[in-house]
Structure formats: structure tokens, C-alpha cells
Design a protein around this nucleic acid. Structure first.
Lengths: 359, 359
DNA sequence: CTGAAAGCGCTTACAG
DNA sequence: CTGAAAGCGCTTACAG
């Protein structure tokens, strides 16, 4: 039976190191006392200062004390002194509802950690009030800077308070050129790559099911499609461009129109549309890729690699967007002053396009 | 032409408020000077201390100064003083690769913010070294506590350093009972609910395609299936339980075996399997739900609601897991001392089961 | 009703 | 080679 009493400052407590006690964190001063040195000395050995010449013996005593007491430096105090925190804020509007934000987080964190920064994340789900609060919070924690990211590539109005910090837009951009550093996916190149997959498959008559929803992706992916055709010497035929809502139901619904076009190859605005189109094609007794070669866009988790047959597509470089955002924020990458920096969307070829399908 | 020189402490600088300058943050002291009061007074009005009686006039002067200077309190200094930080750490192993973690983050953040805490997130993608670093970082920021979460429900070994903090396991648990507070989904109830959807559809002969991969979900979902059958007075037939790898390819591959069982209703271990099974059934000329009623598990984003027909399933309560984890950490919810707290998995009924299908 | 002072846990010149 | 002291930006008793 142990008598439970608060022994605050009880001198009778045994001097056995009580590790992992969650009561009051061990402080630098306590380490110094335990090692019989000044706090300055402890600080010096912890931070491995080059020009601090500490006797090896002293150094060892300090290290032992640190281990004994289970000392953890107080990062708050540390940043208070240094003036500059080791946080990078990441405001995201769709961590919960899409699988895309995860990759941005991953890329941003890997890059941030590489440079000694931790990520302070706020998920706003598009709520402006939450967003304001999130930015205020980050500002109060004196973050090194803020990455403001959106789950789909779009123009955005930079929140006023964001300008109080160093910031970079990730997967979005300000309509006014030069108003903000930004990094976005290269939709044109992506659209071109997607179309080229079909061209390489021997197709020359290629339909494109674009989105009905206005977005940089809608314009860019169409432009890429045109670029690819032009480079291949194929005249652009507006009749081969359809439009549908960019999800499974939209893709499915576009089947009928597509079949009227008498094509054997189609490039869909995104993978979800392609998934719906798969169902539509099957219902019409058509097989992929023999009757219809299909290419998507996004390389969306859970879907793209697991359709039957697996879908050829183009990858949205979310990881790289996050990483590039951090590098730009830290001044490691140059930001072009006038426009957003574009990150390449690599092609991912799978079985939905036959290698040398008959044209 | 403006001469650009560092005017540090230059008394000649105009007293026009330079807002949004990113140089040196405005401090409490500067606000106090501008308002002509002491720092204590400023602190008092900022924190709206009840028993501090400040003249309304003074209060107003302080507020004006704050606005004028664009003052932001330094959260680092604040927490240094108070001793207790306003951070809750969230260690997650799969933010990048699955859509599930997003919901945990969302739930945790909403609940944390409600209580004035910000989330410090670290994505480890299962890397143990990263994990150790992440926990150390959180410890150094003196987080109020740590949520240790996994992207799929599983037993886990609690990392040593995690014990230095107050912590709660989210979506995972320690094999040794009583070793750690934990919150997990109720797989048994979920499996029962899934089966009940089919029972309500009039089915009595129901197959279950379980996962081949050992996991609490595998045992729990099977148990729930048995429970539902028993409650309905239907004898359990082991021959109706198949197994497959829990993804689309696994579900597709199980089609043949399933059809041998001569059933018109099947409950799949997860939505991905159901998605693959859809393809298999279609290839066999069977229609859903008329020839085969299908139920999944997970209510996975992007998939479940968008299959043809939309899939009846059971929702994994990730949002609630995150929120409950925070509440448990803050001591707002009781943690049962012996086992993990179980969160309900609600049924989501869609068109893959006909309402009164013929048995 | 408001100010002066101590202190939170560190780091960084500066002495010695 | 090491210690005493000041200071980072706040808050909190304590005076007055």
C-alpha cells in the first residue's frame, strides 16, 4: 500500500530517475543541476555548437544527465528565443473529402522535415470562417510561412490575412498575375500526354469527353489534346469533343453520344468519368481496349489501377506540388514572378489501351 | 526615389502604422507603448479577464492600438508562460495512400478546435523512424497529448516514446488489455448491420466473402454476420463463407466460387471487393440487385455511391473516431479501462439490394 | 483602476 | 573551458 499524497517538492523523494513521468517536464536547469554545470553548458552540448569547447568529460556528464532524466527540450522556449519558429502551416480545403490532399500533405511534410520544419495543418473543408481562424492560429504560432492549398486546381482569392505571412499557393493561383507565388499541375502537358497514349496506340480518331464544369483543368486538358493532335498532324475536329459532368454518372451518361461519333479511342477528363464510361461501354457489349481504347486523368487512388482493365491515365502530381510548395516557400526553388510554376503530370500506361491497336 | 537603408530604431520613421509588414512581428510591449499603458493592461484586455477592471476608455485605446499595429499575440510565449500548450498531436500512418485518414483528421480537428486546440499532424506512412521523430517533435512542442492512428483497424505495438505523453490509440489498439486507451470501429455491429440489409431485402441464404488477410475486421465482420443470421433464426452455413484478397481483383476472382453457392445475396468484406465482384457478375450476365443483391463495407469515397447500381454498405466511422479520440484524450469521454471503446458503423442503404426482393 | 516586477525555459554574447 | 546575466514575448500575483 502506497500512501498517495502530492509530494510537490518533497525533499524525501528518492533520487531514482523517474522517467516518463508526465507530471512536469524536466527542464534544462534540472539537467544542469544534475550534471553540476551551468545551463549555458547544457545548452551548448545539446546544440552541438562548434566553437564551444567543452571538456569531453563534462560533455559526457551532461549527456548522462539528459538520458537519466529523460529530458526533452521545450521547443516553445527555443523558438521564443530564436524568434523564428520551425513550423510551416498548411491550410487545405479538402483533406476529408478527397484522397488528393493526402498526397499534398505527404509531399509537403517530407520536404519540410528535410529542412527541420514541422507541419501545422488545418483542414477547412472550404469553410471561410474556419480558414480565417486557421490562418490566425498559424500566424500566432509564428509559422515560417503558409502553404494554402486546394483539392482541385482552381483560381482563388487570396485571403487578406494570408498576406501577413510568407505564403505559397498550392494547386491554386491568384487570377491577378504576380499577386502570389503559386505551384500548379501542368494541365496542358497532362492533356497532351494523355492523348499521346492513344496516338501511340495507333489511334488517329480520338474523342475527348471534357468536363462541363469550368476549371483550369477543363481548358488546359482540352488545349493539351489539341496540341497533341496538331503535333501528330491530325486536324482538330470539334465534333469529337463531348462534355459531361466529371464523375462516374457523367461518364456513363456520355456513352451514347460517344458511340455516335464512331471512334475507337477516347480520352476522358478524369478517371471517375472513365469508370462510368466503362460501365456504359460494357452495357453496349463493347470491350476495352479492343472496341474502345480509354484513357483517363488523375491516376486516382482506389480506382485507376483497379478497373477492368486497369486504366491508362495521367498522374496528378500532388506529392510534388506539396514538396515544391515548401521549397518555394523556403526560397530553395525560384518562383516565376509572373505566373504559377507548373509541375508535370506523368503518363501512367495500363491495359485500357492496346499497344498496337488497329486504327 | 526612396533611399533603402536599414532604419533599425530610426527615430525619424513616420508613425503611420505599417500593417502587414512581415519584418518583425509587433509585440505586446509595442502595443502598450502605443496605447500609453503597461503591458499588463494590454494582456488583461486581450484575454478579457473578468476580474480585471479596466476603464472602458483605456480598453478602447488598447483595442485601437492593437488594430492599428496589426498585433498578433505570440502563441509560443503564451504557452511558455502557461506551461501547457494548445496542441494535440496526430500521428497517422496513411494520410497519403488512403482516403480514410482524411476523415480521422477532420473529426479530430473539429473536436480539437472546439476546445481551443490546434492539430499538429505527422504523416509517417508506416515508417518507424519517421514515427519516432514525429513523436519526439510533438513532445518537444509539449503537446497536450497524442492521437496515434492507423489507416486500417489493427492491433499495434505502442511506441516506447509515446508513453511519455498522454495518448489515445485511434483505429488501433494494444494487444495487452488495459495497456492503452483506444477507440476503434465496432466491426461486429457493422457486420451485423450489413447482413441485416440483406435480411431486410428478404434474403435468407446469404454468402459472405471474407478477407484472406488477418485483421480484427476479418473476425469481427464474420462474427457480425453470424450474429445477424442467428438473430434471424437462420443456421450458419460455413459453406457460404468464401475468402478472397480484399480488393477489386479479389472480389472479381471470387465470382466463380460465389456462383457455385447458388445464392442471390452476398455481403462483401469491403467495397473494393464488391466493386470487383460487380464486374464478375456482369460478365456472367447477372444483374444487380435482381440476380444478386450485394452489400459492401467501408462506404468508401469515390466508389460506393458511384457504382452501378450504387452500393449498399456500412460506413466506417472515421470522422467519429477522430473526434472521440480527442474527447477521450481531453478526458471528456470516459475510456473503458479494459478494452477499446467501439464506435458504431452505420448502415448506408442504396440500390444494390432491392427492397423486397424475392427470397 | 493600473503599473512594476518576477518568471516561464531556453540561447547567446560576454567575462573570466 | 565554463558560468553569470540578459533577454525572447508573454502572464500573473502583488502593490498602490
Amino acid at each position: 500500500m502506497i500512501s498517495q499524497e502530492k509530494d510537490s517538492g518533497n525533499a524525501a523523494t528518492p533520487d531514482v530517475p523517474v522517467r516518463k513521468s508526465r507530471a512536469q517536464p524536466v527542464t534544462l536547469r534540472e539537467v544542469a543541476e544534475a550534471a553540476g554545470v551551468s545551463t549555458a553548458t547544457v545548452s551548448l552540448v545539446i546544440n552541438k555548437k562548434k566553437n564551444a569547447r567543452i571538456a569531453e568529460q563534462t560533455r559526457q556528464r551532461v549527456k548522462d544527465a539528459i538520458r537519466q532524466l529523460g529530458y526533452r527540450p521545450n521547443a516553445m522556449a527555443k523558438t521564443l528565443v530564436s524568434g523564428t519558429s520551425r513550423f510551416i502551416g498548411l491550410v487545405a480545403d479538402g483533406v476529408a473529402t478527397t484522397p488528393f490532399a493526402g498526397q499534398i500533405i505527404h509531399g509537403a511534410q517530407d520536404e519540410a522535415w528535410k529542412h527541420g520544419y514541422a507541419l501545422l495543418i488545418a483542414n477547412t473543408e472550404g469553410n471561410r470562417d474556419l480558414e480565417t481562424d486557421a490562418i490566425a492560429m498559424m500566424l500566432e504560432y509564428k509559422v515560417r510561412g503558409i502553404l494554402y492549398s486546394t483539392w482541385f486546381h482552381r483560381p482563388t482569392v487570396v485571403p487578406e490575412t494570408l498576406r501577413e505571412a510568407d505564403f505559397v499557393l498550392v494547386n491554386c493561383f491568384s487570377p491577378e498575375p504576380g499577386a502570389a507565388r503559386a505551384v500548379v499541375p501542368d494541365e496542358e502537358q497532362g492533356g497532351k500526354s494523355a492523348t499521346e497514349i492513344l496516338l501511340r496506340g495507333g489511334h488517329r480518331r480520338i474523342a475527348f469527353i471534357n468536363a462541363t464544369t469550368p476549371a483550369p483543368a477543363r481548358d488546359g486538358r482540352l488545349q493539351g489534346y489539341k496540341d497533341a493532335l496538331e503535333a501528330a498532324g491530325i486536324p482538330f475536329d470539334p465534333d469529337l469533343v463531348l462534355e459531361a459532368y466529371p464523375d462516374q454518372e457523367g461518364g456513363y451518361g456520355a456513352t451514347e453520344e460517344l458511340l455516335k461519333r464512331n471512334v475507337a479511342a477516347v480520352y476522358c477528363y478524369n478517371d471517375r468519368m472513365a469508370m462510368g464510361l466503362y460501365d456504359g461501354l460494357r452495357e453496349n457489349g463493347l470491350s476495352i481496349p479492343d472496341d474502345m481504347a480509354v484513357v483517363g486523368f488523375d491516376n486516382q487512388e482506389v480506382i485507376a489501377a483497379h478497373l477492368r482493365p486497369p486504366l491508362s491515365t495521367v498522374s496528378l502530381p500532388h506529392y510534388e506540388l506539396g514538396a515544391a510548395g515548401v521549397r518555394m516557400l523556403l526560397g530553395l526553388d525560384e518562383a516565376s514572378s509572373d505566373a504559377a510554376v507548373k509541375i508535370m503530370c506523368p503518363a501512367v500506361e495500363r491495359a485500357s489501351v492496346a499497344v498496337h491497336s488497329p486504327a
